[in-house]
Design a protein around this nucleic acid. Structure first.
Lengths: 115, 115
DNA sequence: GACGATATATCCGTGACGGATATATGTTCG
DNA sequence: CGAACATATATCCGTCACGGATATATCGTC
């Protein structure tokens, strides 16, 4: 993917980078434009424009997102998830769940969670 | 940190790269040597020696792991988690849990999990 | 019409990733 | 014994994601 990770993005089961995951997740509940994505993501994981637009380009190239072609403001470019994009999100969620389960089996307790 | 992520490792709340996470997790239930880590991790996330030993160096530098100094085989170098390393694992688990929760709120269903 | 928020685009330095390669010792088996 | 393979660590280096900085333009508002 991404993921600071080689050819992470298009090459199958590779994990998604935090930036890419956040972007895909932001698009999971509807079309958004770049700046809108940045605003939604801002709190969880501050993202500079370089990361945002660079990631959008890669996601477009990998066909995980696509442009809608419609806009309510000349400046805005709207994006939506493709089927493959949703699949990637599902796969990533499964990966996270599996990792979390492995961690729990090893006695790892998420901070802020009291036994 | 890591993670194809700037100075991910030592700089606080930054997420852990998959490679680093796997290594720390492998050490969570006891001391291990490099090759032993590679074997445990192999199934979940195949890792070449470059990634393994490079990550070990960075983890040592960031004081998330340390060498035990003891060995049962001249060739082996054993590592264990430091307190900071365990904290990093806990924080990462919390991060994953939060992301998973956000994903579920958006209707993302991990693959292989039927409604 | 000045100013700040909105919006996108590009540049580029840094550094993680990870395959390839090198080297050496332990083990196994004919 | 010796060949072949597993164990074990170390280093090199090309590629590419990250992400801050910067540039540019339009919108809203006072």
């Amino acid at each position: 993917m991404f993921d600071g990770m080689g050819k992470t993005l298009a090459s199958g089961p590779s994990p998604l980078s935090p930036a890419v995951f956040s972007i895909l997740l932001a698009l999971a509940d509807g079309e958004k434009h770049g700046y809108g994505i940045m605003q939604e993501v801002r709190d969880h994981a501050p993202m500079g424009p370089g990361t945002l637009y660079g990631s959008l380009d890669r996601l477009l190239a990998a066909c995980l997102i696509e442009e809608t072609g419609l806009t309510d403001d000349e400046r805005r470019r709207y994006y939506r998830l493709t089927g493959a994009g949703r699949d990637a999100l599902d796969a990533e969620a499964a990966r996270m769940q599996a990792n979390l389960a492995r961690a729990r089996r090893k006695g790892i307790k998420p901070i802020g969670v009291r036994a």
